[in-house]
Every structure is written in C-alpha cells, then in structure tokens.
Amino acid sequence: MDYKNYSKYDDVVTKVKLLLPNSSNNPSYESIVDFTVEKAINDVANYCNTPIDELPDELCSAIVSLTAQLLDTHGWLNGQQDDSDIGSITEGDVSVTFKQPSEIYKDLQTVNAISDDFRSILNKFRRLPEQ
C-alpha cells in the first residue's frame, strides 16, 4: 500500500512536524513521524471503507490531529507525556537513549487510533462496506 497516494500525505507530514518538532533531538524522529502518519491514514481508510487514494482532502486536518494525538499521548517522540520511549537515562553529563524504532512500531501496531473524538468526523465520510 502506498500511503503517498493520499493527495495530502506531504501536507499531513509537514503539519505534524510543525505541531510536534524534534525538540529532544530523537534520532528516529523522521521515521517515527512517517510511520505514525501512515498508520493514521491506513486506520482512517479502513474505518471509512475507502481506498487510500480516494480519501477526501477534507480529512487532512483529522488525520493530522489523529497523528499528533497518537504521538503526543504515547510520548513516542520526546518522552514528555510518559517515559515509554526512553530506553535509559544517565545523570552525569546527561545522556538519554531512546527505544529502538522497532519497539515503538510494535507498540503502535496495537493502538486503536480511531477514538470517539474522531468517529463523529469520520462518520461523515464513511462508506458502507462492499459485499
């Protein structure tokens, strides 16, 4: 599945990066953001029963919000919400080691991105599943 077939893919990535900059210099920042955007697009497409390349442009802000919420709630980028993405901390000369991206991707796969906050928005674009 090519997530870049969503016409607003680049806009979503750009907006997410503006909302959640790499303030902690996480070396996996780019790949975590990209993967989370792809998950959000996939989850929205699945929920709406719509192929990715047919998702309406009007869903761009919902996908941005959904992605930002996933990243922020789980603290995968900087550990400010919780320390689940930090592998180790050394106090002398301050050193922070982040979890491997594969651990974060594994966690991300188990998360249900479509919360009640987004159902009302997505229901307006939802199609009946094909028989």
Rank of each mutant, 00 (worst) to 15 (best):
D107N: 13
N112M: 10
N78A: 12
V96Y: 07
H74A: 11
D116F: 08
T67S: 13
I114M: 09
A68D: 04
P51R: 06
V111Y: 01
S61H: 05
L70T: 10
S115T: 14
F98N: 11
D82M: 02
L77C: 02
T90D: 14
T97A: 13
A113G: 08
Q100E: 15
E103P: 02
H74Y: 15
A68S: 12
Q100D: 14
L71S: 04
T90G: 04
C60R: 09
L66D: 06
I52C: 04
D83C: 09
E91N: 10
S84T: 12
N49F: 10
T110Y: 08
L71V: 01
D43G: 03
L59C: 04
D85Q: 06
V44W: 01
Q69E: 10
A62G: 02
P56G: 06
T50Q: 01
V44H: 05
L59H: 09
A68H: 00
E54G: 07
T110L: 07
T90L: 11
K106L: 08
N42I: 03
D107A: 13
T110A: 10
D57C: 03
E58S: 12
T110N: 13
N112I: 03
T73W: 10
N42P: 00
D107T: 08
E58R: 07
L108F: 01
K99E: 14
L108S: 14
G75S: 15
A40P: 00
A45T: 05
A40C: 11
Q109W: 02
L66A: 04
L71T: 03
L71N: 04
D43H: 07
N112R: 14
I89K: 12
G79C: 08
L77M: 07
D83T: 15
Y105N: 11
A62R: 01
G87V: 11
P51I: 05
D85F: 06
D107L: 02
I104H: 01
S61I: 12
G87S: 12
I114D: 09
S102I: 13
